[in-house]
Design a binder for these strands. Structure first.
Length: 831
RNA sequence: GCGAGAGUGGCGGAACUGGUAGACGCGCUGGAUUUAGGAUCCAGUUCCCUUGGGAGUGGGGGUUCGAGUCCCCCCUUUCGCACCA
């Protein structure tokens, strides 16, 4: 018989786990009530999963955190909603499908089935009756419905413009999907492409998305900061420059209007419209055209990596600074971003690092208009870089001497009075590009009619089903465009010949509202019932990875606000608490990923050690927010704990069926009994706090201590003995649910441990009769003394000064003062 | 470059609003039991001299009776943003 078989004989987890999973199913324990009590509900949401294979350690950890919270909240008597689903559209399905000659749907559904069985095996308390799958028509019908609502309100719109294009995946990407100028998924350098695209006008929500962050005290500060910076609001002035010899004005946005008198040139981005309208002299026109081509071919990384090196060409045209009438050269330069502000900048070399580099390169004059302070002068010849701080304005006519905010205000006021500029707020956030030229996504429910324009598909005709196609290999345009049966339709308005929109939606659209579908997942008349949604919302705790900080978590908030605005939701923020769990890395500290091939699965561990031991190991390793380096050795300690200590406590049960609400009185208990009763109550308090903070590692540690100190031979009071066993079982239940249920049944309860409350501690019994007081001399620990809990300061001092260890330090010294911290220490200051 | 975290034994990690640093576990050492154990139980385990001390939470300063915790400077590291005018 192997060691493992011996252990199995003591703790037959396979039988236990199966038994309880079956019972939970029979009892429908995890099915959420249809209508919760809104004052006593808990919506536990974990980010739904992209089914790219099986669940790995990272998912496992995420769902374990949610599971422990959901189960504990159930014990606290809440109406629990703990649903799960699949973010099932997306590129990897197509890629895998192409590689294996398998339809994306088939590949996706297979992965879902594997992942689902893993999750069910892990005993996660999901309510599977509410499972949603974003690639199924009963779900994406409502994604299309959402699109149409956005379209009707003008929030979804189409425009031509330069977009991020991934040459490998042959599709458009949202800004949020471009990392370091590369496609987030495949790492290919992204290029600019001029295309008609669908956008969501998320910029209309920019202010609310920033301002409402202040209403989310329980969101992590770093996520809020990242969102603020991503949205990137800045207040400034838009100033109208005129083009010399033309009636065109060219507005520029600046946040440094105090440097307006230092403008020595002007630059527009190669994509700027104005270039089409200026009649350039032929010698310049050619150069500008050539430069535009060069810039368009450059990837974002090439543009960005050239941080120091800026290039551009002179257009032969001049602009006029409305503040001083100076004539300055108009350049084209690709360090000017087309998508920000007006796509044009005023060049102030003396006070802007980029402009400085550009001016040096092309010998453009540099003019100082800000001094560091009233005494210090800047000399152009000595400048090695731009001076970008605030300071008093100089060489700026009437504004000389003004500095900082005063200067900004004065210049803005002047511009507005004279009608040569206006205050303006700009955002880094751009409208969300949501159309994709790929197959495996939610079809866009719009019909293009020559007569009627863009017509949304009538609600009764939803969903627009994704047709089967022969070939979904990407070629730069939507595969659906090649399916005439799909494309050719009658216009819903005029009945004439019309065409469907061939694009599909970014999968982030699907994941922007899934949390609402869970609330009413089988509704085929509406996306969800408003009544139910308002009862369940908001999400009480949302657990997921930090990677979604500026993508999904902004879209998710945006959709919530939109639905609020059109009367579909009473709330403007979707989640009360956001919790970012730490990554799971391999033992070497590398992030687990499929491409690295270092992904570990929890399945073999669960098979070998049992689900609860695997779960406890994950909980015990580190607090939830910290990254963990997964190491199977973590299992050793908890396995010993469960098999040798925890599980066997049932043998000590004396079948008294104690009253769980009973608090023992001091005189009922012996000294030893008092001690363990104290430990029990302290543990209940400690474990409860640990659960509140999602610090399950310290909960496990506290339970280990309690069980270690529980010496049944010293306990004569049978009720006390049994009470300790019962409460210990309750405390471990959210972490090791099968084990807990098994023991719970063994002590004679019929109803599930999750339906019998959470233990309260006896407030009288968390402080013992005596306490240890640390005695310090000048802040250094020299002794500890045991005193009665109600001993006053004088008694403690007397007791302390009796100690020989203390006397050693006080004998020939003078006691200057004594600091007494109640219940903790006495510090004697001597000289 | 900018912004936000983090840095505690050989290792994972404890330490509530400043108040006995190293809980709990791994590993290691010794012992008990055992035919044997990689099983179980008990004890020890921050480091340095020693039976009493000294040092100690990345480094250096400061505030305080008292600092892992607060303040300043520096180092290392993780994450995010990265020409946003």
């Amino acid at each position: 018989m192997t060691v493992r078989e011996k252990a199995m004989r003591k703790y037959d987890f396979k039988t236990i786990e199966q038994k309880w999973q079956d019972k939970w199913n029979e009892q429908k324990l995890f099915e959420a009530p249809v209508k919760p009590d809104p004052n006593n509900k808990f919506y536990m949401l974990v980010m739904f999963a992209y089914p790219s294979g099986d669940i790995h350690m990272g998912h496992f950890r995420n769902y374990l955190i949610g599971d422990a919270v959901a189960r504990r909240q159930m014990m606290l008597g809440k109406d629990i909603l703990h649903p799960f689903g699949w973010d099932a559209f997306g590129l990897p399905a197509e890629r895998a499908a192409i590689k294996r000659d398998l339809h994306p749907e088939k590949w996706t559904l297979q992965n879902i089935s594997v992942s689902k069985s893993t999750l069910q095996k892990a005993g996660i308390s999901f309510d599977w009756t509410r499972e949603v799958n974003s690639c199924m028509p009963d779900y994406y019908k409502w994604t299309q419905w959402m699109f149409i609502q956005l379209f009707n309100k003008g929030v979804a719109y189409r425009k031509r413009g330069f977009v991020n294009w991934c040459p490998e995946d042959k599709t458009v990407l949202a800004n949020e999907q471009v990392k370091d100028g590369k496609c987030e998924r495949c790492g290919t350098a992204v290029v600019k492409k001029d295309q008609i695209q669908w956008y969501f006008k998320i910029t209309d929500y920019a202010d609310r998305l920033i301002d409402d962050l202040d209403k989310l005290p329980d969101w992590p500060e770093n996520v809020k900061t990242m969102q603020r910076e991503w949205i990137g609001r800045s207040h400034g002035l838009e100033i109208d420059f005129t083009i010399d010899g033309s009636d065109k004005t060219l507005p520029v946005f600046t946040t440094r209007q105090d440097t307006i008198f230092g403008v020595t040139y002007m630059a527009v981005s190669p994509e700027a419209d104005i270039l089409e309208h200026l009649k350039l002299e032929s010698e310049y026109a050619e150069k500008v055209e050539a430069y535009k081509k060069l810039a368009a071919g450059r990837s974002d990384i090439e543009r960005v990596s050239a941080t120091g090196d800026k290039d551009g060409v002179f257009t032969g045209k001049y602009a006029i600074n409305p503040f001083n009438g100076e004539k300055i050269e108009l350049w084209v330069a690709d360090y000017v971003l087309a998508g920000y502000g007006t796509g044009a900048v005023m060049g102030v070399p003396a006070h802007d690092i980029r402009d400085f580099a550009f001016a040096i390169k092309y010998n453009i004059p540099i003019k100082v208009v800000i001094h560091p302070d009233k005494k210090t002068r800047l000399k152009v010849e000595e400048m090695e870089d731009a001076f970008v701080e605030y300071g008093p304005m100089v060489n700026s006519g009437q504004f000389d001497g003004l500095a900082g905010d005063d200067a900004l205000e004065a210049v803005s006021n002047f511009a507005e009075e004279k009608g040569i500029g206006r205050r303006k707020v700009n955002y880094k956030l751009k409208d969300w590009s949501i159309s994709r030229q790929r197959y495996w996504g939610c079809p866009i429910p719009i019909i293009h009619c020559e007569k009627c324009g863009m017509v949304p598909v009538p609600e009764k005709d939803l969903p627009v089903l994704l047709p089967k196609v022969e070939n979904y290999i990407p070629k730069g345009r939507s595969p659906l465009a090649d399916v005439p049966e799909y494309m050719n339709v009658k216009c819903p308005k005029c009945g004439g010949e019309a065409q469907r929109d061939p694009d599909t939606m970014d999968t982030f659209v699907c994941s922007s509202w899934y949390f609402l579908r869970y609330l009413d997942p089988h509704n085929d008349l509406e996306p969800y019932s408003k009544e139910l949604a308002n009862l369940w919302m908001p999400v009480d705790l949302y657990v997921g990875g930090i990677t979604h900080a500026t993508g999904h978590l902004i879209y998710f908030r945006f959709f919530t606000k939109f639905l609020h605005d059109i009367g579909w939701l009473d709330y403007e923020e979707p989640a009360k608490i956001l919790f970012n769990l730490g990554l799971v890395m391999d033992a070497k500290g590398e992030v687990m990923s499929k491409s690295k091939g270092n992904v570990t699965s929890p399945i073999p561990l669960m098979n070998e050690h049992g689900i609860d031991i695997t779960r406890l190991a994950m909980y015990f390793t580190a607090p939830s927010e910290k990254e963990v380096l997964w190491n199977n050795e973590t299992l050793v300690g908890v396995e010993k704990f469960v098999i040798n200590r925890f599980y066997p406590i049932i043998k000590e049960y004396r079948k008294t069926k104690p009253n769980l609400k009973y608090y023992f009185k001091q005189d009922e208990l012996s000294r030893d009994e008092k001690e363990i009763y104290l430990k029990l109550n302290q543990t209940i308090k400690k474990v409860s706090v640990s659960y509140d903070h999602l610090h399950f590692n310290t909960a496990v540690a506290a339970l280990m201590e309690l069980v270690r100190d529980f010496d049944t031979s010293k306990i004569k009071n049978d009720e006390l003995n049994d009470l300790i066993i019962i409460k210990t079982i309750q405390m471990i239940a959210p972490l090791a649910p099968h084990l807990a249920e098994e023991l719970w049944e063994a002590v004679g309860f019929e109803k599930s441990v999750f339906k019998r409350g959470w233990p309260d501690y006896d407030p009288e019994a968390i402080i013992g009769d005596t306490i240890n007081i640390a005695v310090q001399i000048n802040g250094k620990l020299r002794d500890t003394i045991e005193v009665s809990v109600d001993a006053d300061e004088k008694t403690i001092e007397k007791e302390a000064l009796k100690s020989p260890k203390i006397q050693k330090y006080t004998d020939d010294k003078k006691i200057i003062k004594k600091i007494h911290v109640k219940g903790r220490l006495l510090n004697i200051v001597v000289k």
